[in-house]
Design a protein around this nucleic acid. Sequence first.
DNA 1: GCTTTAATGATACTCTAGTATCAATTAACT
DNA 2: AGTTAATTGATACTAGAGTATCATTAAAGC
Lengths: 158, 158
Amino acid sequence: MTTSTTERPIVRPDLLAVLEDGGYRITEPRRHVIAALDMKDEGFTAEELCNELTSVGRATVYRTIKLLQKSGVICKLAMPDGAPRYSLARVDHHHHTVCVRCGTIGEFKHATIERLLRAVSQEVAGEIVGHRLEVFISCTDCKDPVRWPVDAEFGHRH
Amino acid sequence: MTTSTTERPIVRPDLLAVLEDGGYRITEPRRHVIAALDMKDEGFTAEELCNELTSVGRATVYRTIKLLQKSGVICKLAMPDGAPRYSLARVDHHHHTVCVRCGTIGEFKHATIERLLRAVSQEVAGEIVGHRLEVFISCTDCKDPVRWPVDAEFGHRH
DNA sequence: GCTTTAATGATACTCTAGTATCAATTAACT
DNA sequence: AGTTAATTGATACTAGAGTATCATTAAAGC
């Protein structure tokens, strides 16, 4: 762990801009939360972030996560067992690949999903208002044990 | 509510066969659970089932749900807010349409998803081990208020 | 019918993922 | 520097979705 939580963290201006745009104040705790999640390329849980950011209160971490989520800065997604996990949104409209071993979350955009939705909309008696697509992978050379088996709980091989 | 929970329910033989095949006993409580969920074409929660089946204990309802899920008889899926919901599996390999108003769960099969996965597998550094796809709809003439907005919590319009 | 072993039910418990409260603090604006 | 409203943090609380326990009951096979 390299991030000190006492000194003022350096935060990407575009992430701070999100706060400004939303009419939110730029505070020390929020700087710390943003700095911490910006360093991550794996997914993370809210509790993990709490444990790392010892100088920021738990409630504030949760509040900031929610705020950033509403602003589109981070995505909330569900692991195979339904456990929530967050990741920084880098691409605009995208879906996620999730390693069921190490929890690393990747992003991809694909035109095919739009085609799929158009096709489904023909068959469906109603209006499509959203969708959820997650692709579970086992990333190359991953040495971790499987933490989120896809056949547990939710029927994911469908 | 037409299902009495005291008299012996009539259960589709193919659903009972699932129990036999798994080496499980065919018991009265299990008959009742199966009969109840077979009558549903909307999704349901475990608690809802518990409340309907007053003659069956809560633990048994949960145990039976888990058993049937493992046997592939019912699917567990997540609503936009992450809340689990079950539905009887009618088609073999399929995905779900979920009405965010009334909670009705439909099934669809589509070849495009296989194409999509093949395309994604080219781009991804790892092996695809599963996926999750849910299409959220507002079903035709649905009069219910929106119970599961797609923009709450999880980023579902992605 | 008897035996054995699985299954049940009442209940208490657990765990996760938050939200609520509210006095103390602090960012932003003047 | 002073004002004010947003924000914070410590902590308690909640809700949902199950799981554990264990004495009692009831299927299945003989």
